Computed example of a mutant assay.
Amino acid sequence: MDGTHDNDVIVVGSGVIGLTTAVLLAERGRRVRVWAREPAERTTSAVAGALWWPYRIEPAALVGDWSLQSLVIYEELAERAEETGVRMVDGVQGETRLDDLGPWAAQVPGLRPATRDEYDGPGVWARVPLIDMPVHLGWLRARLARAGGTVEARTAGSLDEPLTEAPVVVNCSGIGARSLVPDGSVRPVRGQLVIVENPGVRTWFASARSAGQASTYFFPQPDRLVLGGTAQDDDWSLTPDPATAEAIVKRCAAVRPEIAGARVLDHRVGLRPVRPAVRIEREPAADGRVLVHNYGHGGAGVTVAWGCAQEAARLADEAAAS
Rank of each mutant, 00 (worst) to 15 (best):
P182I: 11
A206T: 10
R251Q: 06
G176S: 00
R202I: 12
G212I: 02
R251L: 00
D183H: 07
V255H: 14
R209G: 11
F218P: 03
V226F: 15
L227K: 09
T230Q: 01
V226A: 15
R251A: 12
F205R: 03
F219A: 04
P182L: 15
S210E: 06
Q192T: 03
E165H: 12
V168D: 12
G174H: 09
C252I: 07
A231S: 09
N171F: 14
S210I: 02
Q221T: 08
F218K: 04
D183W: 10
G191F: 13
A243F: 01
A214H: 07
G191M: 05
G191T: 12
V169F: 01
N198A: 12
S185I: 05
D234H: 08
K250R: 12
R178E: 04
E161F: 12
D234F: 07
V249S: 14
I195A: 12
T244I: 09
Q232R: 15
D233Y: 06
S210P: 04
F219K: 05
G184R: 08
L163H: 13
Q232P: 03
V189T: 07
G184W: 05
W236C: 08
W236H: 07
A254I: 05
S210R: 04
Q221P: 05
K250M: 07
R251G: 12
V186M: 15
F205P: 03
V168S: 08
A243H: 11
A231K: 05
G176N: 00
P188K: 06
N171D: 10
G174S: 02
T164Y: 08
G229P: 05
V196I: 14
V226N: 06
A177N: 02
L180H: 00
